[in-house]
Amino acid sequence: MQIDISCPRCGHDRGVQSVPAAHAEGVSTSYGTEFTTGVGITPAGLVPIMGTTTVDRTHTTALARSLAPAPPRRPVGRLVAIGLVLLIPDLLALAPITAAILQDDQVGLLSTLFAAVFILGILAIPSAVAFSLVIGRNRFNDRVSRGRRAAYAVWSSGFYCHRCGVAFWPLSPAPNIPARQGFIPEHFRWFVWNAGDYVNA
């Protein structure tokens, strides 16, 4: 069966490309080295550090971004590290709090425990915020991963006309996907992300 891939707007098939090919054409990677400087801490004090690093960069055109099959994953590694670093004041406060609890004093054990829980709770707020952001990002990433297969089926069957700047489907790949109708890339992406159930994620 011959599929008509001519653009529904201009009627030409010259300049029409599959959406995966148009997306791949707009994504490139460059490699290079950069000179870096910094400060190191040694027993003798602060020491300047200089060196080079290898850098990988991904360049994405506006068209490739607007035809993306899924939103990018949200990184969580740095937030986890920040949350753990922000727990250090809690850990440092444990020793004096433990010493205060073990001491015989006239304030009473209950008051000391209440003060200890209050202080540790206040010190833990920044790390709790960081970890709650990690949980939110993990939920988002899981939702995108679950819907990626359904969205990819819709995305990969689309075509893009470079002459008119519209994307379309020659045949409807799923229910509620209109065939032979031109959409600007952002509307095309909405249909794809909606098929993956992460359009509002």
Rank of each mutant, 00 (worst) to 15 (best):
V134A: 09
I135V: 15
G136Y: 12
G136T: 10
N138W: 15
N138D: 14
N138Q: 15
N141G: 13
N141L: 11
D142G: 14
V144I: 13
V144F: 04
S145R: 14
S145H: 13
S145M: 11
R146D: 13
G147N: 10
R149P: 05
A150P: 07
A150R: 06
A150T: 09
A151E: 01
Y152T: 12
A153N: 07
A153T: 08
S157D: 09
S157T: 06
S157Y: 00
G158H: 03
F159A: 10
F159I: 07
C161Q: 14
C161E: 10
C161W: 14
H162P: 05
H162C: 12
R163I: 12
R163L: 12
G165W: 04
V166A: 00
V166E: 01
V166D: 00
V166G: 02
F168M: 06
W169N: 01
W169I: 01
W169Y: 02
P170Y: 04
P170M: 04
S172W: 04
S172Q: 02
P173S: 01
P173L: 00
P173H: 01
P175C: 03
P175Y: 05
P175K: 10
R180P: 08
Q181N: 10
G182Y: 08
F183W: 08
F183S: 06
F183R: 04
I184N: 07
P185A: 13
E186F: 06
H187A: 14
H187S: 10
H187L: 12
F188L: 03
F188V: 06
R189M: 07
W190S: 01
W190H: 10
F191A: 01
F191K: 03
V192H: 00
V192R: 00
